[in-house]
Structures are given as structure tokens and as C-alpha cells.
Design a binder for these strands. Structure first.
Lengths: 316, 316
DNA sequence: CAGCTTCATAGCAAAATGCTATACAAGCCG
DNA sequence: CGGCTTGTATAGCATTTTGCTATGAAGCTG
């Protein structure tokens, strides 16, 4: 006994509205159309669905049961329409962001918070990925966009990259680190303190190698590795250890005053933080909106950084 | 953005089945039909719903959202079909029974229990009604059937009545009542004990009047009134009070041995317990099934009563 | 590269949907 | 009680949708 879903919806509307004409109006149909639908439904079922001669119209128990299903169909249909509307406007849906751990923790998570204040109906699914996995995730459509530092030339075909912040690394330490008292730092000053190693696979790892080479050492005194940003900062704040970190990550922590920049020039990677997307991916307005938000947030951040640098001498 | 519910269902089926052909088969359609539906849906939405070139087929986030609604539509539709099926077979649905309080408590409630063991998917809504309200409730389609003692001629037009048990009242008392020791009871024996009045509006009320007239007294020593059957029985069991009760009601309590029949002949009302229905009412197979169950249950009861009467001398 | 599987498209017939116009029924009022 | 109002059912017709078969196109596999 397969019933026509449209008929069920019309049944529900008619009972909710109290009459055929009203129910038809509620659905944007004419009264005869609905009248016939009901007759067909009743014929199909073979049982009366209405109590005759009642205003407002009332259902038999069976009619009421069917109307209940009709109502859920109506609401499901309406939800589907809403989902599309919201999707098109970018005010609804899911954004799946992958990002390198430190940036996600230091900056993106805050921006996600801001974004959700603007678009409370958008859900953000965050995942921690470094470049290789991110490429796979984008191709496999597991994420909508990635936030990753990338060399300008590393971009494979089929991907687009929008830069949001030039890469710039610094050596971080706690604010009362003994090296900050030195007028002029030498390479061997750095090697006499323990170091924190970045997460394996992260771009900072290769940066650290570059620094090693520039200092002319083959290895550092690695005392801590594998920690997330919060762990690293906690570790740095408690010890005299040093770490290579993106400047912006340290900058984002300035209010907490737990880590600062050691004024020592290190070689800079030819990399930029940016948003990585697959060109063929099904577009998601919510994701684009989020990407826009992140971009402007970093744009603002650049200005703040500039003002800050003019006012503050780091490491003092 | 109104979407076609049928399309949503097909989308859900295709994603659940993992392919267009499989989804079409699941719905009993051909592959091209579903293929076109999906194309139409996608065109209407204006966004891709599938990730191209994947086996099994995978949805974009938006597609997944729409499919979720499609699934709820499918299940709603299936529930509606089930409701009809169950209704036609009488194995599903709601039966709304009205009945006079004492019969409902003493007998019908047990039968409802038995019936539910047979038809666990039928819901019974019981309400306590005496004849006048019952007529109103039947006409207003608040109940499907009423169980009520009724004079054969009291039947109004538009109602049908199927007798299930001839009316027979007795005087009830507790098993160790002093009157049970009397060889031969006289009318004035009865008046020397307190009485329990039936619920106002119940047919027993007029029966009590008849008894009064036959005894030749104008009133009795009414000491308790307004109680439900359980209250009345509790009261009778604790006191030497007497009450007019239908024989079958007392019979149904025989196992508990808290009340018994006082062997005193009283005038019998020209009434029968039966099932009252409105002729024009929308038929409800579940209700009919229930009515049948009650009828046969009483049929069995008659035999048990007959056997019991041959074996037992009441009030001994 | 042939063969298999699966999705997309074309073309056509049948069903359904929706509309306007109109008939029918019930309740209300002078 | 006859007409008026309100509301539902039916008729007739045009349009859209749906479903089918047949066939083309694309991707995977041995």
C-alpha cells in the first residue's frame, strides 16, 4: 500500500488549516486540486479519513495518523529548502577546515570563534593536517579548505592558494630568559640552551634544519618534542628553552605575556601562510565566507602587527 | 526554493544504496528515471550534490543534508503505509472505548489486557461514561464503541447495540456477613444494614430505586457513595454494608473472595450489557476486533458462570 | 584494447497535477 | 421559505511529470 507523499502533505495541511480551501491556500494550490488529491488518497486507502459534516474539518483516527506523517514530510521538505537557502547564502552548512596545528591553535581557532558569532548556523569541523595529508584530504573532499604555510612554487596543479600572511619565523623564549639580557647575541649563545622541536612533519621542522645550517651546527640540544602549541608555550614559560615559531603565533600570544621574541635574526623560509583549495571542488558558500573572514582577519592583523612593532621593541 | 519531495527520496535512496541503479532498484524504479530526477534536483538547487567519479557514490555536504531529509520523508511515507496496513488488518491503531465504571473496572480492563497480548500494536483509550455521555461521545466521534447496560427499547436511531450479557443484579455483601447465616431472608433484614449507593448517573442507581419499591421502603440507610468499584469492594469487605451490583461484576471478583452474593431475589431490570456503536461511524477494524474479543470473552464467561452456578451455592 | 559495469540522454506514452468553470450541499437571515 | 453565503466536489482541459525502453558515453579491469 504505497501512498503518495504529496497527498499526505495535503491531508496534513487541510487538517491543520481546518478546511480544504484553507489548506489549499496554505500550500499555494487551488481548492479543487486538493479536493481531488484527498479523494484519491481516501480511495487508495479505502477508508474514510474525515468525519463528514464537521467544521473545522476533523479526521478519523486513521486520517489523523496519516496526517501526522504528512506533517513530518512537510517539515522535512521545508528543512531541505532551508538547507539549500542557507547553503547558497553561506549562512548555513558545514565548513571543514584543515590546518597546521600551531596556526590553528594560535590564530584560526580564535577566528573560528569570531566567525561563529557572525554566522551561528555554520558548523566548523577542524582537523589538524600538514601539507601532504592536506593535499590528500582536499582531493578526497574530506575538507573544504586548508590553512597551511606553503612555498609559492610548491603548488601542485589543481590547487589554488591565496596568501594571507608572509611567513616569518622567530626564535621564541620566555620573557625573563637570560639571553634577553645580552646586548648582542651570537650563534653559540643559542646552542647553549635546550630547544623545543616542532611537531614531526610540520614545516617548522625544515625551518629548524635551515637555522642549524646557518649556525653551522649539525644538531641542537632537543629537550622537548611532539607538543601542541599550548604544551610548547607552557614548556617555554617554565624553562630557558628556545623554539622556532612563526612570528604571528608568538604575536597572538602577546597578551598572555608568556613567550616573547628573541632578537636574533634567523634565515627566513620562502613560505607564506595561506588558504589552500582544490579548484574542482564543489563550491561551498559557507566555506568561502569563512575563508573571507580569515583573510580579512589576517589583513587586520597585519596592521596591528605593524603598529605594534613601531611601539614595542620585542624581547625587552 | 521549493524542492520536490520525490526527488529528495530518490537522492536518499541512491546515496544509501551507493549508486543510481541500486537506488532505483530499491525504490522499484528504473535507473534512467532516477538519473533524471537527480539531474532535475541538482539543476533546481544549482549546486552539485555528488562528488563526481566515486564508487560508491558520495554526496557533497549539501547533498548529504538533502539526503537526510529525503530519508525522513521515506520513513514517514513507510510509516503511513504501515498505519494503513495495520488499520485494515485491525492490528494497529487506536481503539477508544467508553464504558460504565463498574463493568470497566471489573471485567473490561481484564479483557483489554488479554486483547493487548494478542494485538500489542493496538492502543486502547478507556474512558468512563454512562449512557447519556456515551451517546454524545459516540456522536461526536470521541469514542469508537461503548460498553453499557441498556434497555432493549432505549436504543435511539442511528445506533446499533450488540448484547453480550443479560443484565442481572444481585445484592452483594462480604463473605462473613451475618445475613448469610439466615435461613430465609426477609425484606426488613436488608433494611437493617447500611447500604452503598452506586455512582450517580449509573444504571444501578435506578435499579436501587426499583428494589426500594419492591421492598416497600422509601429510602435506605445509605452510608457510602461515589466510590469506584475497588472502593466499593474494599468498603463492603470491611463492613456489613450491602450493595446492588451486577452479578457478573461480583462473579469476576470470585477469586479474591472479598464479596459474595446474598441469596435474596430482587427485581431484575430489563437491561442487557452490550456494545453500543454509532451506525454511521467510520469503521475501525481494530475496534471491531476488540469488540469481537470482548464478545467472545463474555461468551466464554457465560459458560463458566453456568458451570460455576451448578457447582457452587453462592453465599455459603 | 575489448568487455563489463554504470550513469546519462533521447524519445515516447501514460499518468498526474493544476487550473477555470460550475454543480452541489449546508447553514444563515430577512 | 427562498435566496444568500460559504465551502466542497466534479468536469473538462492544458501542461507537466513520471516512467519506460533503447542507446550512447565513460570509467574500470583483465
Amino acid at each position: 500500500m504505497k501512498l503518495n507523499e504529496r497527498h499526505l502533505m495535503q491531508l496534513a495541511a487541510v487538517l491543520d488549516a481546518g478546511g480544504v480551501s484553507e489548506g489549499a491556500a496554505m500550500l499555494g494550490l487551488t481548492q479543487p486540486a486538493v479536493s481531488r488529491s484527498l479523494a484519491m488518497l481516501e480511495a487508495r486507502v479505502g477508508e474514510p479519513l474525515f468525519l463528514k459534516g464537521r467544521r473545522p474539518m476533523q479526521a478519523t483516527p486513521l486520517g489523523a495518523q496519516l496526517a501526522a506523517q504528512g506533517r513530518t514530510i512537510i517539515t522535512a521538505s521545508r528543512k531541505a529548502s532551508d538547507a539549500v537557502q542557507g547553503f547558497l547564502k553561506g549562512t548555513k552548512g558545514i565548513v571543514r577546515v584543515g590546518g597546521v596545528p600551531f596556526f590553528m591553535d594560535a590564530m584560526i581557532s580564535r577566528m573560528i570563534g569570531e566567525f561563529q558569532n557572525l554566522e551561528p548556523e555554520v558548523t566548523i569541523q577542524q582537523s589538524y593536517l600538514n601539507l601532504p595529508e592536506m593535499v590528500g584530504a582536499l582531493q578526497g573532499d574530506q575538507i573544504d579548505l586548508g590553512i597551511v604555510p606553503i612555498g609559492v612554487l610548491d603548488l601542485g596543479p589543481g590547487f589554488e592558494f591565496t596568501e594571507i600572511l608572509p611567513g616569518r619565523n622567530i626564535v621564541a623564549c620566555r620573557p625573563d630568559h637570560p639571553l634577553l639580557r645580552n646586548r648582542r647575541l651570537r650563534a653559540h649563545d643559542l646552542t647553549s640552551f635546550p630547544w623545543v622541536a616542532p611537531l614531526p612533519g610540520s614545516p617548522l621542522m625544515s625551518d629548524l634544519q635551515m637555522i642549524l645550517m646557518s649556525i653551522g651546527m649539525s644538531d641542537l640540544n632537543i629537550r622537548y618534542s611532539g607538543g601542541s602549541l599550548m604544551s610548547v608555550i607552557n614548556f617555554l614559560a617554565e624553562t630557558d628553552a628556545l623554539a622556532v615559531l612563526p612570528f604571528s603565533v608568538v604575536f597572538a600570544q602577546r597578551k598572555e605575556n608568556r613567550v616573547t621574541v628573541l632578537p636574533y635574526e634567523i634565515p627566513q623560509p620562502n613560505r607564506s601562510l595561506g588558504i589552500l583549495r582544490r579548484v574542482g571542488a564543489p563550491r561551498s558558500p559557507a566555506a568561502e565566507r569563512f575563508a573571507g573572514h580569515v583573510t580579512t582577519a589576517f589583513e587586520n592583523l597585519k596592521h596591528i602587527i605593524k603598529r605594534h612593532e613601531n611601539a614595542v621593541v620585542w624581547g625587552r
